[in-house]
Design a protein around this nucleic acid. Structure first.
Length: 572
RNA sequence: CGGGGCGUAGCGCAGCCCGGUAGCGCACCGCGUUCGGGACGCGGGAGUCGGAGGUUCAAAUCCUCUCGCCCCGACCA
């Protein structure tokens, strides 16, 4: 491709709207342009990268035995009402009505549509297992789209759905996808890690997320330093506490803590460690209020609380609510004397003695409060976030914390959708059985963005070869006859050898061309200039290392083919 | 949705406090010089100052409403 025939509007300056590296570089390299918040046009260069990733995904899906199909973007509300997700999905679902006033949505995911296909078309266990996938545009009206392709409201996703006759089969299907995902992200040149994850809105019994490790990631991953445990912090289990405080109970007393509302302020004021304090957080769920107790240096994990309560909704109580429940302003809530409300506590609280808690009275705390004597707890459980230094729940060392970008997610769905939608088949005994499902997603654009987060320098992008928009950036310098002629010849023969070349045929100064080439990030740059030709050489530069090799022009194609791992075709 | 910020030429911004000619850099067009890491000279085109209302002799600037966008928190590929 010649630059005169492909629109690559590179930007010299950073666009003001972009914060993260990948967003900035994608805009600057002329890969994407914003149309509305979270909605982008993929320009030719960006689309080439997207297509490369899609192709890798396609190859690995096919290899894993999945079959490609394509479902519609628009789907009728009836299907979503069958599973209850028309309501449950909430504002994130882009909804619209047709001319007959019938409800539709733009698909955010396709469990309903694929399950509908399955129940209509599949009858027998002999047809199983099945796995269908598609690469398609999805719509989610995200609360806050951000970081370019990282979190769009319209985005390209590969989604796959497996159907098995039983749990054992489903586990095999799941494992195949898990393995395929590992291959896909490896082939894309990413440093990533599969982690145990929460299932969120999709539902199901268990899942793994594939996390690209990057400081700009929105997810928090905890992993055992020495072992194999890794999980999203939303999901990460906390090992049962081993430190049991055996000290004798002292008698409870009230202390004045004027205007000390936070753990930090109270513990500083009383000159105690946050580990001696129990903080009380008040929440409102679907139908009731609850208090959640955690140690002062711990954080409540709301997902775990939701799970314990079997609630779909959980919001921290506002100031009026807190006042109503405790009779005190925010900052002084405590379990002692707290009436008419369920009290949950993290397991670590169980073994604490002589703790500091709010007194449900303005500017007052209790010290030396004790469980069972001064207050009671209705349920204990693992309700906090794992944190750096915790013991691994698998007993393999201590936990560390890192940031990650979720590029893929695999779920064991079980029969959640097949049950809701009566997706059944007949087993060998002729009995009707519900299909056991799995679903598997990859964010294609997010994968591209993640790759940039991991592969860039101050000058621009450094694409891994398999997803680079072009293999070689051909950079002729000046307009001399010999340079132009050689550029044309090399362009032809590289193309004939199956090598993808971007030929900068603009009449620009060397600096402009070099800077654009560095920004765009093809793995190899081939520079042709009068200076080199005077010595009979062209220069091949590796974008990543900056290392330059001088080559005779007639060796260039073979040398490049070798570096790229191609078997060069004889050029005509 | 809560908190913070921004909308002025294609891009990046100044001007706004203290009302009075709409400006700078880059990009773009023409001519010339230049040409191995973002050249220079001369000439030029381009802006409903996000939108609507109001105050005023006069509004980019003050007031009200509104729309859009970005950043920080609760959702997810």
């Amino acid at each position: 491709m010649r630059t005169s025939q492909i629109l690559i509007p590179t930007l010299r300056e950073d666009p003001g709207e972009a914060e993260t590296v990948s967003h900035r570089l994608m805009l600057r390299a002329g890969m994407i342009r914003k149309v509305a918040a979270g909605i982008y046009t993929y320009l030719p260069l960006g689309l080439r990268v997207i297509r490369k990733i899609e192709q890798i995904v396609r190859e690995e899906m096919n290899r894993a035995g999945a079959q490609e199909l394509l479902m519609p973007i628009a789907s009728p509300a009836e299907l979503w009402r069958e599973t209850g997700r028309w309501d449950y999905y909430g504002k994130e679902l882009f909804r619209f009505k047709d001319r007959h006033d019938r409800d539709f949505c733009l698909g955010p995911t396709h469990e309903e549509v694929i399950t509908d296909l399955f129940r209509r078309e599949v009858r027998s266990y002999r047809q199983l297992p099945l796995n269908f996938y598609q690469i398609q545009t999805k719509f989610r009206d995200e609360i806050r789209p951000r970081f370019g392709l990282m979190r769009g409201r319209e985005f390209i996703m590969k989604d796959a759905y497996s159907f098995d006759a039983d749990e054992a089969g489903a586990r095999i299907s799941y494992q195949k996808m898990y393995d395929a995902y590992n291959r896909i992200f490896s082939r894309c040149g990413l440093t990533f890690r599969p982690v145990e994850a929460d299932t969120g809105l999709i539902g199901g019994s268990s899942s793994h997320e594939f996390m690209v490790l990057a400081d700009t990631g929105e997810e928090t991953v905890v992993y055992s330093e020495t072992g194999s445990y890794a999980a999203n912090v939303e999901r990460a289990e906390v090992a049962a506490p081993t430190d049991v405080d055996q000290s004798p109970m002292r008698s409870i007393s009230e202390v004045r803590t004027p205007d000390r509302r936070t753990v930090e302020a109270v513990t500083e004021f009383l000159k105690i460690s946050p580990r001696r304090l129990v903080k009380t957080l008040l929440y409102t769920t679907d139908h009731k209020d609850v208090a959640v107790l955690v140690r002062g240096d711990h954080e409540v994990n709301e997902i775990k609380v939701k799970r314990m309560l079997n609630a779909t909704d959980l919001v921290l109580a506002g100031p009026e609510k807190v006042q109503a429940l405790t009779g005190a302003p925010v900052g002084f809530a405590g379990p002692v004397g707290l009436k008419g409300i369920a009290i949950l506590a993290d397991q670590a609280v169980k073994h604490m003695r002589n703790v500091v808690v709010g007194a449900n009275k303005a500017d007052t705390h209790f010290v030396d409060a004790n469980i069972d004597r001064d207050f009671s707890v209705d349920h204990f459980g693992d309700l906090r976030n794992a944190k750096e230094g915790d013991l691994s729940p698998r007993g393999d060392g201590t936990l560390r914390v890192a940031k990650g970008i979720e590029v893929g997610h695999v779920f064991m769905l079980g029969t959640k959708y097949s049950q809701a939608m009566s997706a059944t088949f007949l087993d060998a005994q002729g009995r009707e059985q519900q299909a056991v499902m799995g679903c598997y997603g990859i964010g294609i654009g997010r994968t591209a963005a993640s790759s940039i987060e991991q592969n860039h320098d101050a000058k621009g992008i450094i694409w891994p070869l398999p997803i680079a928009p072009f293999h070689v950036h051909l950079i002729p310098l000046g307009q001399s006859q010999q340079v132009l002629e050689l550029a044309g010849r090399l362009y032809e023969s590289l193309g004939a050898a199956g090598i993808e070349v971007l030929w900068d045929d603009r009449d620009e100064r060397a600096g402009v061309k070099f800077n654009d080439a560095d920004l765009i990030g093809a793995p190899l740059h081939l520079v042709i200039g009068d200076k080199g030709l005077a010595q009979g050489v062209v220069e091949l530069k590796a974008r990543k290392t900056g290392q330059t090799t001088r080559l005779a022009p007639n060796e260039a194609v073979a040398a490049i083919g070798e570096v790229l791992g191609f078997v060069p075709q004889p050029s005509s």
